[in-house]
Design a protein around this nucleic acid. Sequence first.
DNA 1: GTTGAAACCATCTGAGC
DNA 2: GCTCAGATGGTTTCAAC
Lengths: 149, 149
Amino acid sequence: MTALEPLDQAIVRELAGDGRCSFTDLAERVGLSVSAVHQRVRRLEQRGVIRGYTARLDTEAIGLPLTAFVSLTPIDPAAPDDYPQRLAHISSIESCYSVAGDESYILLVRVPSPAGLEELLRQVREAAKVSTRTTVVLSTPYEGRAPAL
Amino acid sequence: MTALEPLDQAIVRELAGDGRCSFTDLAERVGLSVSAVHQRVRRLEQRGVIRGYTARLDTEAIGLPLTAFVSLTPIDPAAPDDYPQRLAHISSIESCYSVAGDESYILLVRVPSPAGLEELLRQVREAAKVSTRTTVVLSTPYEGRAPAL
DNA sequence: GTTGAAACCATCTGAGC
DNA sequence: GCTCAGATGGTTTCAAC
């Protein structure tokens, strides 16, 4: 995987900071013509460097005030490792990481309440035969900051 | 915090899926006029329900192929709890969560290499007087999926 | 790979309901 | 709070370099 050119870096940095930034603004900020920027952004999208765009939401305002990390340990270590797939339909799971260490996976989940968390854990244990360890998030000083390029 | 109206829910769901969706498209998808959608989106932004927009990037393509969770435990339990602030300048830290459990904080970090991780841990220990426990991410089956509304 | 211009389309505002 | 319509300004394409 070849490293990103400085101009593409600049574009990507701007779009990480403001995903709805117009091409006109973008062009000014990176010092290129509008068409050139337009072409480069399209190319970055097609190459998969930019995987998409999303609105960053206030989890409380949308009714999911409880965030938690759920670590997964397979009950049967010999079972086929298709946990992510088995859990994909559970929409409270925002992210799924395969990790090195004591556990096999770490999930980031968002639920409306402690009752929602209980329900989620039930679903997870049912869908994948795993034991779970849950770490409740008390507050989020910051999240999803733009990467350093 | 009053719950989200169904129309606002629909708008927010669409923008979580495609943050660069035009107001024209958005209007069609939620069944409203363009101006009405426009007005509602602006209101959602001002109320802080929508906190911004970002490009979702391929971490490998931008030169940060190594992701890890770093758990923090204060060395002096009586020290003032200003860790997030003390760590905020470290740009490899994407997210910082205050958590219940054995540790006080969990950081999500992105670095170019194992050497970068080592350097990051040094920086973290220096900036905050904490001991760290690191869980390396091997792969990411999914991440940042749109929330269930 | 960049530019500039032209055609098209989206954004945004304000008046009216 | 929604709609319509008009003015502004952004997006997208294309020919040329």
